[in-house]
Design a protein around this nucleic acid. Structure first.
Lengths: 209, 209
DNA sequence: TTTACTATTGTCCCATGGGACAATGCGAAG
DNA sequence: CTTCGCATTGTCCCATGGGACAATAGTAAA
């Protein structure tokens, strides 16, 4: 599935025809706002073919907006002019590719293939991450506190002191944490936390210049 | 410190003058090979100002070469022509920025500032990573095996079975692993392993399309 | 008010982790 | 041949983790 955003109707249909012929499903949008109004389903394998210069929200602006909304849809930009600074910003902001019009079918299809392949990977990573975060979200405030300390290597006793509770209590919370996070060992718990970005930077390795 | 690679001598000296005036130390190289011959010190805060088109190894080729060599020096490309595909590749390959000639002092100094700031961060991350890897490298083969299993949540008993040894033996190895890795808890050990990329992808979350 | 969730703490008991002290066997480097 | 690093295993003992069973109390929702 490819989402085409371009204000030029004849261009849209031309590209649409090319992509459909290549076996892709296509949805077209005359403006960024049209796409925002019908946000593509994140879970469907797809990418966005986005014109850099369009009336209303510009391509990069739409990219920023989607990013704010947490979208991971890969974006392939199309631009009529070879604007290096814009290209640099777009790629650094995560665009999959930037193509110049007129674009050959080879370039176009290649870029779209890469974008879709990339989306597939991203989507999987994302779903794992969200699964972990969902589990964390189900922890009660107290359990969350215990969690934070446990993954940093604190023993039950140490956690008990910090949180002003009995070791026995911490044991109970810890047990529920392991349960809710669906892990069998401390190692797994730390792995998940690390991958979910719960553990900030480790102290002690700071380095001035 | 800024390393300038450009085949045009007059351009080199012009830029050199501008940068020195802005307070930077400068080293110039007439070709990619000259820079490779005197590889800049990774530990010094610096960046490379690299012309895209130079005789011999091209800019992107030098970039690839440095990358292979494990360099993390940030690269700011300079190009006389607005080549979008090349720009895209350069940025995706990790270039800090791509500027078009003629370049304003504002652009140039801004890009260099960002590159140096980025290098500072990268360098710190890198030194931490290397410290961890250095520790791992000091493990004996057997200790390494124990390490791999322990960070995946295996108990001493389980490790013992897998490696065909007594639980007591594993305990001994494990003890030395904790010692050599300089950590006090399993949680820290897992954190380090995770950050060093020792733990591959977790099984069980695969997802087909 | 009754139910449900959360936080808290206890005791008993067993499994596991980890330190102390000690020893054996093997292969490589000197 | 001797020294050194590595792998191996033992016993004793204590600290810590974790399951089972049980209970109290406050708060918020139904």
């Amino acid at each position: 599935m490819v989402h085409i955003v371009d204000d030029d109707a004849s261009f849209r249909t031309a590209i649409e025809r090319r992509l459909k012929q290549a076996g892709y499903e296509v949805a077209t949008y005359p403006s960024a706002q049209h796409l925002l109004d019908r946000l593509p389903n994140e879970s469907e394998l797809s990418c966005i073919l986005l014109d850099m210069r369009i009336p209303g929200l510009s391509g990069p602006e739409l990219q920023a907006r989607l990013s704010e909304l947490g979208s991971t849809l890969p974006i392939v930009f199309l631009t009529g002019y070879a604007e290096v600074p814009t290209t640099v910003r777009a790629i650094k902001a995560g665009a999959e590719d930037v193509l110049t019009k007129p674009v050959s079918s080879e370039e176009l299809l290649g870029a779209i293939e890469r974008a879709l392949a990339h989306h597939q990977v991203t989507r999987n990573q994302r779903s794992r991450l969200e699964a972990v975060r969902a589990h964390i979200a189900k922890l009660t405030p107290r359990e969350r506190e215990v969690f934070e300390l446990v993954i940093r290597g604190k023993t039950n006793k140490q956690v008990a002191v910090v949180l002003g509770a009995t070791e026995r209590t911490i044991k109970a919370h810890r047990h529920r944490v392991m349960e809710k996070m669906q892990v069998q060992s401390l190692a797994e718990l730390v792995s998940l936390a690390e991958r979910a970005g719960v553990l900030g930077d480790l102290p002690g390795t700071a380095q001035a210049n």
